[in-house]
Design a protein around this nucleic acid. Structure first.
Length: 849
RNA sequence: GGGCGAUUAGCUCAGUUGGUUAGAGCACCUGCCCUACAAGCAGGGGGUCGUAGGUUCGAGUCCUACAUCGCCCACCA
């Protein structure tokens, strides 16, 4: 016998292990159509947070649904080496042990990193298990696996040979903390309070000067020109002359360039080609020297003269002081401008001239844009609007800096010997070639994930069977980093979209709507939630509390109320199972279904229909609401109460059928509790996980009976309200006309019934509707005023409705243009209302006597 | 500057291709320990759907403008 209260800890114990051992998670049944999702690989840097819990729950719901519905499902697990993030964490750990990681041998350091990876992978496995995820572990991959590394090299080499990967000196985003280059996507712009420093750049051999405005005076050591707009009347005559660079004292040219905006600042810009992307362009146009004035760690180098060795911010301060002293500084105007910060280390990014590897994006992006025009081959975003985010990125994207000055990652398959470069899958045979010491951007390997995990570039059976993937589930914040890159790499290398559908969800926020973050300390550990409320409650909450693409506020109250729902289901099951104790398969019967049975079966089939529809559209919030209402309102509040009155074999069969259907529909959301209860059903099979998903049974849809009972229910509610409002005692005598089922629902016994004659000429309170009437034998005179008031309200409401509907139906436009079924329904409703009004008026007259 | 989203009950959110009486959870009020469940049961109150126009027989839903909040992208010497 089940306990009175749902105990999630007891229910969730041991089931996962059993499922896994039984091989339910495994893919490979080729008799079924394939269905594949690859997990967005979590970073091996820490714990999974609520965002992961959400993301993976959605995938598990889809996978469990598809598995039950007859598909050979592959949900492929894996993890990402997460270059910068992991390296930073490993370094931090080493530093805490008193070891300077940069003094280590690369190989030695990698050993430490792999140990780290193993430890964190272990944690993640435990968490996946706790979340109940039906992942096929036999296919698990890691982005630094041999197989995946081979795909990475293949892609690099091919793109290189096609001229789509090149090495060059460009201004890139430099992270002076991690000491590596970054891509644009890894730079976060933040508003920073800075200042516009107005400086005097004296003309050569003159007392006059140009007023230059800059936010970065410390880069002046790298200035190789000053630019003015050629159309700027104030300055155009100076073009071709020279100014003297302050502090340094050397002369640099004044160039005319459209980059200088006469409206902005003073209209005179200092040009530092090695430290600003725009200046770099200007430098190219005017053939200017590029002088890097900083070291990789953000300190000033020898070009900064006496400032050499100073940190860039310290240097700025000192330079400004010195300029002031020398009378060069005219003014400091505070200003707020946005400055790039490293996504990982949060330090200010330094635009920096550096030799790096790049992917030439234009042709790759164009292919995506072209492909998205084709309905049959494009990536279908859910919700659709996110396609725009990808397309916009494809339109404006520029070359992707893929080399990273790190140790943790895929080593770039390029070798150098003097000035020669070799790019290939393996090192060149001859002596003297040295491999590039850099690794690739983590996202370079992530971009291949949907196919590299399936064995590509080999034409493996998995690749042929499960590619393209059916669906990818991820947050909108990952579209630029990942979804976009998978899409162009997929198209380029496999000629297919990597996945047919892309389900996008939002971000998890705290109760106040703030993003969950470490610095705010408002993060919630999903494992704690599971501990308190259970995995099933967490999953149902996450999957059903928001519409696709929308953010989700974590609200413990809602998780709690989900727990209550499970407890409700638990107790309903408890009731059903109590009545099924000796029930056997032979007793099952659907012969001679009565009204309430037809009613619940009809509602159940409606539910199956609507649930399937919304499952297919990834609208899990609708599915959740529908099942919730059916379970609580239809099944528990009405059907179980009705069933109590008879409880024959047929009723038991219906109870069991409905409960089993509920369990199956809920299983993708709540794998544990549904399995627990399922196993107690007298007719259960091996596991609910591999049972079949409910299908609509047309033969058990009885619309007529459904609306009949609906009407009776409405009457019952009306009577209960009336009794409560008029404080009518429980054992009141009544006269009743209508279906006796109503008396059962009202819990009115035979002893309470009186004949029509008894109530005649009595001051009876009554409730009447089109389907039944009930009279209460009690002195309603003291409630007369109140009752009249209620009646009057009802009367007014009905009259208003009737008028409105009559006008509506008198409107020829409406009658001719609205769907006829709707018009018919309106007519019927009108008739009902008229009847109801009649009844109300009768009663009114009676009371007024 | 460009784009996207949000604005609906006290709070958090749903609301299908427009269909005429806008829903849920929590909170609130009244009455109940009835043998599945008091983490429950039976009832109840509460919203001019951000503002102003427009299209339509009909608008929370479509169009235009505006307001407020949030996000993304670009620019910022």
């Amino acid at each position: 016998m089940l306990e009175t209260k749902y105990n999630h800890k007891e229910v969730e114990k041991d089931k996962y292990k059993l499922w896994k051992e039984k091989g339910y998670f495994a893919s490979g049944n080729t008799n079924k159509p394939p269905y594949c999702i690859v997990i967005p690989p979590p970073n091996v840097t820490g714990k999974l947070h609520l965002g992961h819990a959400w993301d993976t729950t959605l995938q598990d719901i889809i996978i469990r649904y598809k598995r039950m519905d007859g598909y050979d499902t592959l949900w492929l697990p894996g993890m990402d080496h997460a270059g910068i993030a992991t390296q930073a964490k490993v370094d931090k750990k080493l530093k805490e042990q008193g070891i300077n990681p940069r003094t280590m041998d690369r190989e030695e350091w990698l050993k430490v990193a792999w140990d780290w990876k193993r430890e964190y992978a272990e944690n993640i496995h435990t968490q996946w298990e706790k979340l109940g995820l039906s992942l096929d572990y036999s296919k698990e991959r890691f982005t630094l696996d041999d197989g995946l590394s081979k795909s990475v090299r293949k892609v690099f080499v091919d793109l290189y040979n096609e001229g789509l990967i090149y090495r060059g000196e460009r201004i890139i985003n430099w992270d002076p903390e991690a000491m590596t280059a970054l891509s644009n996507e890894e730079v976060i712009y933040k508003e920073v309070e800075g200042a516009f420093y107005h400086l005097k750049y004296f003309l050569e051999d003159s007392d006059t000067y140009l007023e230059v405005a800059t936010t970065r005076p410390e880069t002046l050591f790298g200035d190789t020109a000053v630019a003015v707009n050629p159309n700027d009347e104030r300055y155009k005559d100076y073009i071709g002359k020279n100014v003297i660079l302050p502090i340094v004292g050397k002369k640099i040219p004044i160039v005319g360039d459209m980059h200088a905006d006469p409206e902005f600042g003073t209209g005179v810009v200092k040009i530092t080609p090695a430290h600003d992307p725009n200046d770099f362009e200007v430098g190219q146009r005017h053939n200017l020297e590029r002088i890097v004035v900083m070291n990789p760690n953000g300190t000033m180098n020898e070009f900064a003269g006496i400032y050499k060795g100073m940190d860039r911010f310290e240097c700025r301060k000192k330079v400004v002081e010195d300029l002031k002293e020398q009378g060069i500084l005219i003014d400091i105007k505070p200003m707020v401008h946005s400055v790039g910060h490293s996504e990982r280390t949060d330090v200010m990014v330094e635009p920096y001239l550096s030799k790096q590897w790049f992917v030439k994006m234009r042709p790759l992006a164009d292919r995506v844009l072209e492909n998205q025009k084709n309905r049959d081959t494009k990536v279908n975003f859910v919700p659709e609007r996110f396609e725009k985010v990808m397309n916009h990125w494809m339109e404006i994207t520029y070359d992707w800096c893929i080399s990273r000055q790190l140790w943790w990652g895929h080593r770039i398959p390029a070798w150098y010997k003097d000035d020669a470069v070799y790019v290939g899958m393996e090192a060149p045979k001859e002596e003297g070639w040295v491999q590039d010491t850099d690794v690739l951007d983590t996202w370079f390997s992530s971009a291949l994930w949907p196919f590299s995990t399936l064995g590509w570039p080999e034409a493996t059976s998995d690749f042929k069977r499960y590619y393209p993937n059916n669906c990818l589930v991820t947050g909108y914040d990952i579209i630029p980093f990942w979804v976009n890159r998978m899409t162009f790499q997929g198209l380029h290398f496999t000629n297919y979209r990597p996945f047919q559908d892309c389900l996008i969800h939002g971000l998890i926020r705290d109760k106040q709507g703030r993003k969950m973050s470490k610095s705010l300390g408002n993060g919630v550990d999903p494992m704690d939630v599971i501990d308190t409320y259970g995995c099933d409650a967490l999953r149902f909450f996450l999957a059903t509390s928001s519409a696709p693409g929308m953010d989700l506020r974590y609200d413990e109250e809602k998780v709690k109320s989900t727990w209550n729902f499970i407890n409700k289901l638990w107790n309903a099951s408890r009731f059903v199972l109590m009545n099924l104790e000796d029930f056997t398969k032979e007793q099952e019967t659907m012969e001679g279904l009565d009204l309430s049975e037809k009613w619940i079966l009809t509602k159940m089939n409606h539910l199956i229909q609507v649930v399937r529809k919304h499952m297919d559209q990834y609208e899990f919030h609708v599915v959740g609401t529908e099942i919730y209402n059916f379970v609580w309102n239809d099944f528990c509040d009405w059907y179980i109460e009705l069933a109590k009155m008879k409880m024959n074999d047929r009723t038991k069969t219906v109870l069991m059928t409905v409960l089993e259907t509920i369990l199956k529909l809920l299983h993708p959301f709540m794998p544990y509790v549904t399995e627990e209860i399922y196993q107690m059903l007298p007719t259960h099979e091996e596991s609910i996980m591999i049972s079949s998903y409910p299908t609509v049974q047309e033969e058990h849809i009885y619309e007529r009976e459904k609306s009949d009972l609906d009407e009776m229910i409405a009457f019952v509610v009306k009577v209960r309200t009336y009794k409560l409002e008029n404080q009518i005692p429980k054992d009141v005598k009544v006269y009743f006309e209508g279906n006796s089922l109503i008396l059962d629902m009202l819990k009115i016994t035979q002893e309470q019934l009186v004949s029509k004659e008894t109530i005649e000429n009595q001051n009876c309170g009554s409730v009447k509707s089109n389907c039944a009437s009930i009279y209460f034998l009690f002195d309603s005179s003291k409630n007369l005023e109140k009752e009249k008031e209620i009646l009057l309200k009802e009367k007014e409401k009905l009259e208003a409705n009737i008028t409105r509907r009559e006008n509506l139906l008198a409107n020829e436009n409406y009658v001719s243009k609205a769907p006829s079924a709707l018009v018919e329904q309106e007519r019927a409703t009108l008739e009902n209302e008229k009847q109801s009004l009649e009844i109300v008026l009768q009663k009114w007259n009676q009371l007024s006597k």
